[in-house]
Amino acid sequence: MVFLEFEKPLEVLYEQLEKLKEIGGDGEIDVTETIRNLENKIKNKRKEIYSNLTGWQKVQLSRHPERPYTLFYISQMCKKFIELHGDRCVRDDKAIVGGLASLDGQTVMIIGHQKGINTKMRQYRNFGMANPEGYRKALRLMKMAERFGIPVITLIDTPGAYPGLEAEERGQAEAIARNLFEMAQLRVPIICVIVGEGASGGAIGIGLGDRVYMLENTWYSVISPESCSSILWRSWDYKEQAAEALQLTADQMLGHGLIDGIIKEPVGGAHSYPEEMAKILKRHIKKALSEIMDMDPDVRIDVRIEKYAQMGAYNLAKEEPVKEKKKTEK
C-alpha cells in the first residue's frame, strides 16, 4: 500500500493492525475485539481525512500510483473489448488507447488516456501525455463510431498533451483543435469522465461531450498547479496556493457549472477500491447514455454546442461605449 502524506495517520493505524494480527496469529491472546475496534478506528479516520481534502490533496490523489487507469476500467466494465491501434498516418500513440466494447450489450467506442502501472510501463505510455497521433487516433475511432451510430465514451487522465519537438512538428495544436471541432458536431452521444488528471488542452482534446463528469478525487483546469505556480508566482513552491486559486476540484467545477456532475468515489478513493469504483462508473455511464441515446442527433449537437456557449463569466460595461471608430489620421 502506498500512503500519501496526509494519509500518515492511517499508515500508523495500519501498522498497529498488522502487529495485532501477528500477535493474534500466535493464538495465545484473543485480539478479535481489539482488531474490530482498530478497524472501526481506521474506517472513521479515513472518513475524517477524506471528507476534508484540500485542492492540492485531491491533485495528489488523482495521481496516486495505484489509481485505476482506462484499460482497467474497460476490463471491469465491458465485455468483448477489441483495442484498435494507430492514427493511419504516423504511428500508434500508447498514451491514448481506444476500441470497440460491449457495455451490457450496448456497443460503445471507448477511448481514454492510459498511464503505466510501473516505471517501465510509465515510460512506454509516455506518462499519459499524448502526441498528435493520439488525438488523431481518437478522432479516427470517433468518426468510425459516428458512421455506425455507436456512442463514444472517453476517460480522461493526463498531465497534459506532450510538449515535445515532434509533437509540435506534427501539429499538436491542430490535432486538439480538430478534435474539438469534430467532437462538437459528432452525430453520436459523447460521454466524458475525468478519472484522474484533467490537464488543460491535453484533457479537452478528447473531452468535449454531451455529458462531462469528474470522479470525486480528480482535478480539471487550464494548467497544473505546479506550472501555474511557476508562471504566476515565479517559483515551484506555491502549488498548494495555486491549486486553491484555480478552483480545480470536482465540487468547484460543478459549482461553476463547467461540468455536468460528480461521480462519488468509495471512501478512501478509487485506488483503495478499484473494482467498486469501476462498478459505480459503469452505473453512471449507463444512466447518462440512457438520457441522451434517443435524442435527435441534430438537437443533441445543438444542445451540446449551446452548453459550451454558456460557459463564461463577464460583466457588461455601464457606460455606453463609443460605437463608431474613425480611421486614425496617417
Binding site: F181, I204, L248
Partner: peptide, 12 residues
C-alpha cells in the same frame, strides 16, 4: 482557470 479552458470548446 477552467473558464478560460472552456473557451476552446465554446469557440470551436
Amino acid at each position: 482557470a477552467a473558464y478560460s479552458l472552456m473557451q476552446l470548446p465554446k469557440t470551436c
